[in-house]
Design a protein around this nucleic acid. Structure first.
Lengths: 348, 348
DNA sequence: CTGTTAGCGCCTTCAC
DNA sequence: GTGAAGGCGCTAACAG
């Protein structure tokens, strides 16, 4: 820099070695000063090292540390769809908790594709994350399942920790959600305020959550004296548009006495509301709608959505805590809670 | 495994060395077989290596590869809030594009805190990501700003690439959004359908996006003959709850002739709609509301929200493409587009 | 308390 | 075409 200007040429990042030399100490001392090991370092030396590091804009090479230590500080998170509020809320929880533990989260989306999920688990395994959290619940059984299980088990055998959110399979650590209980409670609450004839919008992929919610709802109706005919159960995509289409199908076929439509997820319910409105009807008044999850927008749609609250962010936090060995996170299924709002007005 | 069962004890992950030995070839040959280098490998050998790898459940150690190669396959993404649809949509775009380039995305949230942002940039720098994307737009200037700039420049000097989304500072690569143009167009469209008296809900942190949107809106009003009084501009948090509170303030103070409230983001507009409704008024009829961004829920609230579409996912994709040197991604500001919906019915 | 040194797992010239 | 060997940046024994 003979011109005295700032050197902006891309250059090799400073290494610990450089810092040690600059500070006039050994590599080991530099290392100990910067990340404080068990051993103590003379204050003066430490100070010198730290200043040298600052002067050189030194930034520890994490991959190198990982290799030397034999362990990373990474948490891998695999979700079905990042833009879906269900998953982004969970992700926010995982990130928040990771933060507290000084871990970094890597995030990927499977697009609800089992092939892709498998592929990603394979790729992620290579990163040697400390923890792998899978939140995209998937079919109860399918061809890729065994391969997935194999991969996950291999990962655990090599010292990794897997946590599944919302499904209970493969004998892996799981954060269970009380889907069934919530659905039962919802059904009872709805029959309790006078509803009798129901319709259902659910997913078509046989996800565990879907199944549990439907079964629970059925059970709750039985107990409460409501009725649900088999052909009033519409299977569609587990998305906003799926909810819209499913509701439209139901409407064009004729509601035929259905008083309330239960959508297996809020995001589907939101689609259903729009479909109802687009058909010239008024949700709540002409047909009631209930959802599941209590995503943030549930209270902002009109009418505000009756639903079952699943503490999504807490799920994410709990998943990571469970992975990190916090045993009280292992407890039992995460409780859910019925939230009655105006989309299901009391019937007389 | 004398008992013939499956060994599930946590064991050391298989290394390339193990694979080579198992296949009876050298380390180099194993390496070349598995990740295909420039050199050719005898088919038979390669086959043997691949099988050995499968047998041992070998998974390449990415951190080790990174070290040896001197470069990672990581993209670091820093956003303000993961659960906010604005950012999760951008994130989805980044992830999708990263996918195509076989890169892994690590994601962190700053919680809109400049301190945290700085801290994270520092930590992320250590990961030696190929690219760093900052999407949490922040104050136009503040104390942490220079430190941030210093850190980012050091990162670039060491060979990294930084891309900013939505702000134009520090002389770094940027994906610009035409906030001003969109706001101008919105204002003109609204005056065009008969609105004259406006109110505004905007953020209080002086984010560039806020400022541009407000200025643009003002300019558009002038051109279109609308009016906006200074005390009809409410500064509040750039969140759903901020929108709710701001609107409530406006309402309790008395709308005083305001016909339409422009919220600087959809998420704030959504809060405003709820506030209006909670006050016993009907949004659209009693007060019109417009937002900005066109997040997915904009069309699902009632009445559907008039807004300015920002192609969020595309922003994310473009940011990464720009980072990867795709020059056509460098073009000019991303275009925005006015979307009129029922929250702003034409005024005779 | 400080310094020396041997790896961590992999890639990549360089000889063969 | 294949193998041997050095080195990537850092940590963690191990001596001093």
């Amino acid at each position: 820099m003979t011109d005295g200007g700032i050197d902006t040429r891309p250059s090799r990042p400073a290494t610990l070695h450089d810092v040690a030399r600059e500070a006039g100490v050994s590599l080991a001392t530099a290392s100990r000063s910067i990340n404080g090991s068990t051993r103590k370092v003379n204050d003066e030396f430490r100070e010198r090292v730290l200043q040298a590091a600052a002067r050189l804009d030194y930034s520890p090479n994490v991959p190198a540390q990982a290799m030397a230590r034999g362990t990373t500080t990474t948490v891998a998170l695999l979700v079905a769809d990042i833009a879906d509020p269900y998953f982004s809320s969970i992700a926010a929880g995982v990130v928040a908790e990771a933060d507290a533990a000084r871990l970094i989260v890597t995030m990927t989306a499977t697009d609800r594709d089992a092939e892709r999920e498998l592929e990603f688990v394979r790729a992620l395994r290579g990163q040697r994350p400390r923890v792998m959290i899978l939140a995209g619940s998937r079919p109860t059984a399918d061809s890729a399942e065994s391969a997935l299980g194999h991969e996950l088990r291999a990962y655990e055998r090599a010292g990794g920790v897997v946590v599944l959110i919302g499904r209970n399979e493969l004998g892996l650590r799981t954060v269970l959600v009380d889907n069934a209980g919530g659905a039962v409670a919802l059904a009872r609450a709805l029959t309790g305020i006078g509803y009798r004839r129901f319709g259902v919008l659910t997913g078509s992929e046989g996800l565990l959550a879907e199944v549990d919610r439907l079964d629970g709802f059925r059970a709750g109706l039985e107990a409460g004296g409501g009725s649900l005919r088999d052909d009033d159960v519409v299977r569609t995509a587990f998305t906003r548009d799926g909810g819209y289409d499913g509701m439209r199908r139901l409407l064009s076929r004729g509601l035929d006495g259905i008083e309330l439509v239960f959508a297996a997820s809020d995001i589907m319910a939101v689609g259903a509301l729009s479909a109802i409105r687009d058909a010239g009807l008024t949700p709540g008044a002409d047909v009631a709608v209930a959802g599941f999850d209590d995503i943030p927008t549930a209270r902002d749609v009109t009418p505000p959505l009756t639903t079952v609250r699943v503490p999504l962010e807490a799920l994410g936090r709990r998943a990571l805590r469970l992975a990190l060995g916090n045993s009280d996170a292992a407890a039992r299924a995460v409780a859910t809670e019925v939230v009655l709002r105006e989309s299901t007005p009391a019937r007389t």
